[in-house]
Design a protein around this nucleic acid. Structure first.
Lengths: 172, 172
DNA sequence: GCAACCAGTTTGAAAATGAAACCAGTTTTA
DNA sequence: TAAAACTGGTTTCATTTTCAAACTGGTTGC
């Protein structure tokens, strides 16, 4: 059960878990897109992941404890994938990666609005987002004091607003 | 000069640049280990990178503008690799990845002390580290008001202190 | 009963990775 | 001054990973 690891360095070990071309993209879709089923992740994937690669990544991320898999009671064949606490705590990593990518790489406006808002919100917003994810993915009890859309829904609304504005501008 | 990219999403684009098993490890050694020459990166690599893979990664990171390459005036054959501003600004990403890896993966104490201190120091320490890297890698003028070891040296000293303590404990 | 949907698996070709040997020129050492 | 060691890599070939497409066995809705 011990060391197949290249080293005990936290950077290296993290790279061993999510250092490939697809893992973070799949986790992004689960976290920000609320995609929880295989077909949702497959057909909704903006980057066009292949089904065998998706199956492999879901298997690996599950075995690493970053996500978990459960039967969907509504359908005998449906499996529902959820972020674990370990996966949820990748939120700050996504925030930093999103900020760096937005600053230095050729992002499109509509796809970087979420990253922009998440960076601007800082640690308090990340905490709120993680708390929402615990409710959605872990079944944690929702905070009775809060109301209105959760963080993911707000980010999604901002994305849609940009798309609508672009479509408006394009029409004219 | 346009889209060979899978999408314009900042997460995806970042993954396209550093989403493999070696790029972040090489950048880590440059940033935290101050390894600037090919042989230093090759022989000093804790994880044992192969020379052809190292050559390929240095080429790719250079073409992405994350690092740069220059002749070393002290030796006709020596090349010196430096972080660019784009590379230096990965410091917060490393800080978050290091924190996550330290919390959730089987790190060793001596190799996670740097990540721990960097996380505890927060954004002010990251800023200071980045300013030091600009001096070391970009030739920026050093702040005349500061003195003593720079951030990298302090992290290195902390690492060595842990190793020394372990060696002490082991001897008894 | 049949079409659409479910989570994947299979197949075979292309690309990436990895270990080891190797290279030509440069600098250091005896 | 000749040999040894060092410089940044390249070459070779075997193994592993990726990828697209076709396919599978079962489930659900109409």
């Amino acid at each position: 059960m011990q060391d197949q690891h290249r080293s005990g360095c936290p950077i290296n070990l993290t790279v061993e878990v999510v250092g490939d071309k697809w893992s973070l993209v799949v986790l992004r879709d689960m976290m920000f897109g609320n995609r929880r089923h295989f077909r949702e992740l497959l057909n909704g994937s903006m980057e066009g992941i292949a089904s065998n690669i998706l199956a492999d990544r879901l298997r690996r991320l599950t075995s690493e404890g970053v996500i978990s898999k459960a039967d969907d009671p509504s359908h005998k064949q449906k499996a529902i994938y959820s972020l674990t606490e370990k996966g949820i705590e990748l939120v700050p990593v996504f925030a930093m990666i999103g900020a760096w990518g937005s600053k230095w790489l050729p992002v499109t406006e509509e796809l970087s609005i979420r990253a922009k808002l998440l960076a601007e919100g800082g640690p308090p917003l990340w905490e709120e987002f993680m708390e929402d994810l615990r409710v959605t993915h872990l079944g944690a009890p929702p905070d009775p004091d809060r109301s209105g859309p959760d963080v993911r829904e707000r980010l999604q609304a901002a994305y849609e607003a940009v798309v609508a504005r672009q479509s408006e501008a394009h029409r004219s």
